[in-house]
Amino acid sequence: MSGRLRLIAVTAAVTLVLAGAGAFVLGGFHDLSAARQHPPWLYRGLGLVRDAVVAADASEVELPEDWRPEAAAEDAALFQTHCATCHGAPGLPPAPFALGMVPAPPNLVAAARERPPGEIFWFIRDGLKMSGMPSWRFRLTEAEMWRLTALVEALPTLSPAEYRSLLSEAGALPPPDGEAAPSIGPNVLADADPERGRMAMRLHGCRSCHVIPGVVGTSDLRVGPPLGEAGERRYIAGVLPNRPEAMVRWIMDPQAVDPLSAMPDLGVAEPVARDMAAYLYALGDGPPAAAPQASEGGGAPASAEARAGGPASSHRPD
């Protein structure tokens, strides 16, 4: 009898160990490199658990009586100092160190549209383990945390230009990077590697704002347009006729293309931007056949063409 019990115990123990080892290896838990993404099912699972737990915890947060979403200049400056370093801001990039974080710090304009103020406050006050989000207790007062919550919840009402003018009013506008607008040579895709581009997009936090096939992240994200068909669209950012040099220029310096754009200048180096463009084109059938051929470097703003009769007239003979 004791022999049979021992057999059952040993079988159970061995089964548990094997199952654990299997889950560890097959589930990708041994892969701790931040250069590789989470398996999609793990990313989604962690997100579901996080949202359920945070919703329950944050339901006990009580809003101050006079609280309301509000974009005050001094709070925008506070946000720019403490939050935008990782999360970015409308039209402004995170600090370079934050671009390679896994998981990528979420874009807070999108978060504000989805989450109630109690949850935003909870994230600021309590932080989130293993995500890089710190608890701001002791370093911000409760009043400051509520003011930041008010600013975050007001972000969806601000254009990038309005956010910049708030910062400027508070004397907190970051200085321009001083780099000249890039001039892009021909044949930009000649040595480009789409697969390297895919990894570079992950490690520049592109997925915080765009849904990108092949890159794991929040589903239904619409801060920027989904990029699955971006390579096939006839215009980039609604402004530049889509050809590879224009795509590289846009990725490297969006404000040189359109000063009003919400897309931030992420400091992408040209070879990296070439790889990213190659990945975007590899997702579809390449640049649209009807796009004008390169004849003038980085491409001119499309407004003149648009006014001259719409996109259909943008094809100019060379």
Partner: peptide, 15 residues
Amino acid sequence: PPLDAMARQVYVAGV
């Protein structure tokens, strides 16, 4: 761009 989810889109024309 596709207009299939305009309600979820954060920006109009990216600006």
